[in-house]
Design a protein around this nucleic acid. Structure first.
Lengths: 86, 86
DNA sequence: AATAACATTTTATAACCATAAAATATATAT
DNA sequence: ATATATATTTTATGGTTATAAAATGTTATT
């Protein structure tokens, strides 16, 4: 879940509510309404995203630490595929 | 974990005890001694592997259902990488 | 004979994570 | 005005999964 959300936040800042339809559209993944909220809630505490308020919406931006986490995740996945395909 | 184990069982039948060092060697993954036992124990109940005794060792063989699970897992991973790279 | 290494079983536990629950607040359409 | 859609918060819960726990039996070594 967090990988999907970080991927989208790398492209542009988003707020939790618009993530649900976006996750469906981009990844064919239908999360519960509340899921992006909880994931962002925890990622903010971890310093992987940071928030700002704009027009009564809480926009999240990925941090340097978040980008690093995403890239490590991608590397892990690539390695996994290579190892499982060999 | 189960993906790693199914991958190894696709190559040849193995028993739980030899899986631990194999998982390290092939995937750089060091599980606890008991982990392969528990994973195989559950996969047997799920019909993804089946067992036979040979020289006091319980050899596990991947089933058709297990191969299918592995291939679905691989497909899922490939799709994931494509989507996250796009 | 005794100790270490090999080999297995099954339940319980702890951590992780998506979702449920139960609130609250604003904006828009009827 | 009132229902509906949009938007958020935080704790609790339930499922999954690797590992801990606590046994037991066999084979090889000293």
């Amino acid at each position: 879940m967090w990988v999907y959300i970080l991927k989208l936040l790398k492209e542009r800042d988003m707020y939790a509510y618009e993530l649900k339809p976006m996750l469906m559209e981009r990844f064919g993944f239908q999360p519960a309404l509340v899921t992006p909220y909880v994931v962002l809630y925890r990622m903010e505490r971890g310093g992987f995203v940071e928030a700002r308020w704009d027009e009564n919406k809480k926009y999240y931006k990925i941090t340097t630490k978040g980008v690093k986490l995403f890239e490590e995740g991608m590397e892990y996945l690539s390695d996994l595929i290579v190892k499982l395909s060999a």
